[in-house]
Design a protein around this nucleic acid. Sequence first.
DNA 1: AGCGTTGTTGAGAGATGGCTGAGACAGGTG
DNA 2: CACCTGTCTCAGCCATCTCTCAACAACGCT
Lengths: 224, 224
Amino acid sequence: MRILVVEDDRNAAETVRRTLVAQGWAVDVVHDGDSGLARATHGDYHAVVLDIMLPRRNGYEVVRELREREVWTPVMMLTAKDGEYDQIDAFDLGADDYLVKPFPSHVMVARLRALIRRGAPERPAVLTAGSLTLDPAAHTVRRRGTDLTPTPREFAVLEFLMRNVGVAVSKADILHAVWDAHFDGDENVVEVYIGYLRRRIDKPFGCASIETVRGVGYRLVAVD
Amino acid sequence: MRILVVEDDRNAAETVRRTLVAQGWAVDVVHDGDSGLARATHGDYHAVVLDIMLPRRNGYEVVRELREREVWTPVMMLTAKDGEYDQIDAFDLGADDYLVKPFPSHVMVARLRALIRRGAPERPAVLTAGSLTLDPAAHTVRRRGTDLTPTPREFAVLEFLMRNVGVAVSKADILHAVWDAHFDGDENVVEVYIGYLRRRIDKPFGCASIETVRGVGYRLVAVD
DNA sequence: AGCGTTGTTGAGAGATGGCTGAGACAGGTG
DNA sequence: CACCTGTCTCAGCCATCTCTCAACAACGCT
């Protein structure tokens, strides 16, 4: 395991380094945001431990920039502050975990291990199919730049379809993924919602992203 | 997204359920470890939110047992205690993430999303015979790049033939593989569908992939 | 060649699957 | 309370698909 530690406090950095080396991991340490960004971009690490308070470029900026460069290495953020909003910000910017200082070293090790096991998410958070994009976190859907406003159910159906682009999914699959176990209605709801979605995301743009696969279900394809 | 929530405190469970439902996810709630284990094993969820303090079987035991049963659904553990050892134990037992109560609901959502983002099931392989390809997942058939649109029955017959390229299969085999057990009609249907398929996948391209083996049945061969 | 057997095909009746408009109902909001 | 939005049911319509039947063609055997 190769770990990059970005932490400007030399003492803290040394403590972390020792802990990780004791695990048998290879550790590189840098002390400012710029070097951290550069190393993380090109260094091929299994995880990055990133302090928030950094000279030259703070932790938030480093993650955001990393994700913008399509680097998906797991990032664990460290901070002295205890504000919950920091966590949110960190998550929204693309960090994968968060620790509040001071923390026992074995907690950091355990959670780093979990991060590494989870692996780098190959996919960015936004789903795309042709000119259609769906952001699960922001709860937005766009086609050619214009904002669409699906209802919650429509959104859920579309999200499922977009997680299976090009694959024919059955109405039962959709029902199963979107409606909960207590639902005992007809599969016709799915047909109805497909109809709603077509009116919402296809008709106004003259496309046909949702294909019917007779006897099977539906397939979402990438169109412009 | 289908989420299972295992939490014995009815109030807490309801809060979590609402948060997740507001995301457009399908949520099932159970209140004890045994039911949680049963549902998680067979329920096909995208993630499980699991309290540690549970009647009948605690959260640790549930994860351990789940992993022993080779169920790899991502698990997020919840606990009221703030003991660091809980985290370690949880990770070691196979949990994928961990939250200490109380937590802001959007943190839970963000981290659940991160958990779900990782695993996408890979598709089954595409079947090929010369210039003819059939993708069972996408439910598509192509010859030399152009999309063919077989009917469901035609597709089923073709899929069976393509899983047996170069092998002569009898009409009885095809009937058995494609039609259900209650079918009591004539083997002539098979002949009729072979005819349809030839018109669909061979005639327009001037090939002859489906050969008749007189007295035996049919054989699909690879041609360009 | 002649003949029975086996395979091919066109026509068409009936069944099925999918789409949609109308409307009931619930929950939230002014 | 009236109104709006979102969810879901229902029933009718339409296009397509499935399968049967029967005539016809091809094959292979004596």
